[in-house]
Amino acid sequence: MTAGAVLAVEGRWRAARTRQRWRLALAAAAFAAAVLGSAWIGEVSVTRLVRGVPLAWDYIYRTLPDIAWSTAGTDIAYWMWGFRDWVALLGDTLLMAYVGTVLGGGVALLLSFPAAATLAPGPVVQLVRRVLEFMRTVPTLVLALVFVYAFGLGAFAGVLAIAVHTAGALGKLFAEEHENVALGPVEGVRAAGGSWPAQMRYGVLPQSLPGVLSYGLLRFEINVREASVLGIVGAGGIGEELYLAVRQFEYQDISAILVLILLTVTAIDLLCGRLRARVLGARAA
């Protein structure tokens, strides 16, 4: 290669490197502008942050129970004075989450097949996806407010709110799992004369079932936390007691209820992990 050709290649490389640096600089500037704009609109203030952190810690410190080593049993019993009532309310919360997850998961599974772009015609896919988007766009608390107004106070409104939001969220995730399956088994069922539902049942579902189960178990864990706060709007469960404790500044009751919720969610996470490993076997790893 002549010296002129080498200089030409080097010149093109330098020009490309310069363009890349300009693109990176512009991207960094745009990112910084977006961060600064978001901070300005969000009223982010370092002064308020520094002033507020000690106050936040003071609130947390007030919720901590006074437990001495010499009187630990008595102190814990005093801290957990409402244990039986709180456990009963936690049971209501778990049932709300469970029933809402089962109902919403069933609807999501039915709607996920026509929402998969590789399995249904375009117009049907777009229609079902818009329905799922509406279901998961409305916050669970807003849905609970609507259902409390329609059906009255109690767990029924919470179950419906969780079911609707779960159907929208899981419907999208299930549809994406269906889109990733191999189409060979589907074509085999179709060639054997199977109807479209039969193709979904025998060609798609066996392949996407691990992902469907994983997302379903994860959603149940999420719904337990969702159900824990629905009591704020009168939808039943432990949330009503937590909201009452917060409003009445019963600091130690707040920490006791939160600890029970944390232990419940942890237990559910461990249980779901074991169940997933038992059902899916080696594929769970």
Rank of each mutant, 00 (worst) to 15 (best):
G52V: 04
I67F: 08
G231D: 01
A198I: 03
G11Y: 06
G171Y: 05
A68Y: 13
L209D: 08
A161F: 06
G73N: 08
V50L: 15
V44I: 13
L36M: 11
Q126K: 13
R278V: 03
T2P: 10
L263T: 00
G158Y: 01
R283W: 10
W81P: 01
G106N: 08
P185I: 03
Y78V: 11
V212I: 15
I222V: 15
T18C: 07
G171A: 07
Y61I: 09
A28P: 00
W13V: 14
A116F: 09
A5N: 10
A15F: 02
L244F: 12
L205T: 08
L173K: 01
V44F: 14
A277E: 03
F174L: 01
G82P: 07
T71D: 15
V128H: 11
G236F: 08
V279C: 04
P210L: 05
R201C: 07
R48H: 12
G237K: 02
V107M: 13
V204Y: 08
L263K: 00
L258R: 03
G184L: 12
F147D: 02
L280Q: 01
G158D: 02
G105V: 00
V128W: 09
V107G: 10
G37M: 10
H165W: 01
A282F: 08
D66E: 14
V189D: 01
R51D: 15
F134T: 13
C272L: 07
G194S: 07
A144G: 04
L263Q: 00
F220G: 04
W22I: 10
N223D: 11
G91E: 09
L258N: 02
D85R: 12
A117P: 02
A5W: 11
A182Q: 11
L262Q: 01
L217V: 08
A192L: 15
G73S: 12
L141Q: 05
T118F: 01
L218Q: 09
Y59M: 08
G231Y: 05
W86G: 03
A68K: 13
T74Q: 14
L36D: 00
G193T: 01
F83R: 07
